[in-house]
Design a protein around this nucleic acid. Sequence first.
DNA 1: CGGAGTCGTCGAAGCGCTTCGACGATGCGC
DNA 2: GCGCATCGTCGAAGCGCTTCGACGACTCCG
Lengths: 338, 338
Amino acid sequence: MPTINDVARAAGVSPSTVSYVLSGRRPISAETRARVQAAIAELGFHPHAGARALASSKTNVIALVAPLRVDVNVPVIMQFATAVVTAARSHNHDVLLLTKDEGTAGLERVAHSTMVDALIVMDLERDDVRIPALRRLKQPSVLIGLPADHTGIACVDLDFGAAAKLALEHLHGHGHRRIGLVGPSPAVYRRQTTYADRFLSGFLETSAELGLRTVTHPCEPGAAGVRDCMADIDAQLDGLTALVVHNEEALRPLLDLLQASGRRVPDDISIVAICPRDVATSMPVDLTSIDIPAHDVGTLAVETAMRLLDNRRVDYTMLLAPSLVERNSCKEISPSHR
Amino acid sequence: MPTINDVARAAGVSPSTVSYVLSGRRPISAETRARVQAAIAELGFHPHAGARALASSKTNVIALVAPLRVDVNVPVIMQFATAVVTAARSHNHDVLLLTKDEGTAGLERVAHSTMVDALIVMDLERDDVRIPALRRLKQPSVLIGLPADHTGIACVDLDFGAAAKLALEHLHGHGHRRIGLVGPSPAVYRRQTTYADRFLSGFLETSAELGLRTVTHPCEPGAAGVRDCMADIDAQLDGLTALVVHNEEALRPLLDLLQASGRRVPDDISIVAICPRDVATSMPVDLTSIDIPAHDVGTLAVETAMRLLDNRRVDYTMLLAPSLVERNSCKEISPSHR
DNA sequence: CGGAGTCGTCGAAGCGCTTCGACGATGCGC
DNA sequence: GCGCATCGTCGAAGCGCTTCGACGACTCCG
């Protein structure tokens, strides 16, 4: 492996000159630069990352802390990860993958040993124990999610409150007045992942504003969970004409159940789903949905980390506006049926 | 951030002694060790990764090259990644996540700049262009998959040939004689990911050995793809009593289609699926399946990388034996119906 | 009781890079 | 034509760690 000294010798310059050619931090004449670059290419020189990190205190690596339990939401996690890696590479950074189950210790390990310049953390809980730890680190961090007290830490997420509002407004606009919410599984609420609450609050507020009759219910995974959930919803609200589904796993069994019980979508019941686009379009009925813009969120998280690294100003709460795509699961209801 | 010198001073020893306490490479008296460890704990010392890498030429990081297109098989990829990260951590290594689309250049970048000690590469094609590049690296690599010429590079994968054999033997044992294979999508064959071929060869060989009447067909994604595929299979082989499905995406629409056309599983048609356990158990019918042991494969890949790093002997072709789990999708067929 | 090992520790060199200050050479204004 | 910037380059210091050789203090054996 050639070193910067080898390159310097080959180009007939000093090592510092090579370094300046590489970093562009000082002006170098065109000829010198050309000679150096030729030497670099010829020798196949790549600067040693460790040496560089040691001398410059920059690693050009960011940590991505992901919930790698084989769990719900796998495709969404994957989309985040893809976006983060891609965006990081476009800023000349690499990504070190950590699992959530290393917890606080993992964050401190990589931060204290100077393996990374910044951290991106996903799947935050309302009072996540990692937040105080992150605050203590010298590296900046960006959260994907919105825990309770994130003072001084940048957060990026979909605006789930607005998403709920948007879903209800859409249905309201189509004449629906009696609407059920099929929520995430109780485990999600228990885990205090805040998107569930934010969505729920937005739902309840908008429901009140628009004067709707609504009922909300979490939904256990599996066909049985869906059956129970729908039974409860139907029991509490008759004349139901629409559902908002904030639960990816439930979608498929829900559609199966509706079909089995002879309720046609969208003729008898309309549905708005909150889920990734490809999930919405891979169902028996193409679902009108509000996308979870994992790609945008991941990219924005990286951009934000980069801004923090160059001491540029950032917003500390970035909630992306939801957008609803109409497909074939919502139907206009005539006033007489309201 | 305290350095090794700070620790040394606090403990009243030389920096090298601290280093030896950390690495255990030389004997250190119990008292000294205790004092040093106390100082480390008190100061919250963590060795600087870059400095360490520079001095020792070891990074304690391995690269994981994953196909991060948002594509088929997402859950399986995720399981591999989880297993690799977990196993790496248990060997005191971290994982740098690279995407397949950086190609050869990405591998060379991280290897030449000494960011990683070893590489684990997934989703190999038959004549993958990355293989020659990997051979040139000074870091060892382990492949998850089995490309054509992998001389000198360790490979780990499920034995797909044996899996096909196992599936057919199971069905044959239950009296089935006319069996269809619903294969991966043509895109997979085109991409020359070798597991498809290995499975197919195993299928054809075993079919011949057992004297079965079989027909094989790739299957495009989506309900339409499944319909076409089944139409072709039925056209070529009447009296079909069983299917082997080597295509995760196809499972759900296939079951829908069979139900819609009044063929009950397992009463009218038996199924053996090759897919992760949780996919098999999340279908309307619990499927008898051969698991894709992503966790085991990922773990073994890391173990192998670790062995290579300590210059221990490794096998260069590690094919894990498949295992079939009986659930509710296969039925004994009476001789009269054969 | 002397020499040969072992044990425990230290000092110094060096890993490959960045960066700071210095310095000759130019160009410029007046 | 002289001083002053600016430009382009160099040399050296150092980033924080590992590792090698050295060395005093013991232990052990014959």
